[in-house]
Every structure is written in C-alpha cells, then in structure tokens.
Amino acid sequence: MKIAVYIAVMAGVTYLIRMLPFTFFRKKIKSRFVRSLLYYIPYAVLAAMTVPAIFDSTGNLYTAIAGSVTALVLAFFNMPLIVVALAASLAAFITGLFL
C-alpha cells in the first residue's frame, strides 16, 4: 500500500511537470532571442546527456569508445537513427569480445 503512494506521488509530479507548460502555453513567442533559445535547447540537451555519460554506458571505456566512434562516423554520413544506434551497440559488443 505504501509503495502505491510513492508511485502515485512520483507519477503525479512527473506528469504535472510535462503537462502544465504543454497545455497552458498557447501563445507564439515573439522574442527572437527566446525563439532561438528554444530552437537550440534540444540539441544542447542531447549533447549534455550524451557526453560524458556515453563513456560509462557499456561498463567498459574501450567498448564505449568503439561504439561512440562508430556512431559519430555513421551519423556524419546521415545514416538513419536505427542504423546508427544498432551499429554503435554492435561495435561495443564486438570490441568486448576481444578484451
């Protein structure tokens, strides 16, 4: 029972954080600066989430580097998301076999 209350608080807070700005913010933003800021934020968020966390993501620095380099090269050549993601994983796996 107590765990159900924990889960409810957790889920309620997380939902409100997403819902309030998404539902109640209807205006188009006029400010050029704020529009630019919101345009750049997704890329900045993903970059900050990826580095340096990617180097810990496989439990081994060398397999992580192999996966990262593979992903960078394939992304540079505009390969689809799923191809880049799976190739990074495969590179990490194969490198792991040799360690």
């Binding site: 890329y43 993903l46 970059a47 989430m49 990826t50 966390a53 990617i54 993501s57 496989t58 439990g59 081994n60 397999t63 992580a64 996966g67 990262s68 593979t70 992903a71 960078l72 394939l74 992304a75 390969m79 689809p80 998301l81 799923i82 191809v83 880049v84 993601a85 799976l86 190739a87 990074a88 994983s89 495969l90 990490a92 796996f93 792991g96």
Partner: peptide, 14 residues
Amino acid sequence: NALGILMYGMFIAI
C-alpha cells in the same frame, strides 16, 4: 552491456 550504448548512439544520430 553493449545495449547500454544504444540510446546514446541514437542521440548522436539526431
């Protein structure tokens, strides 16, 4: 372990 990098690979692709 190898699956752990999947999401980050996707971020890089984005």
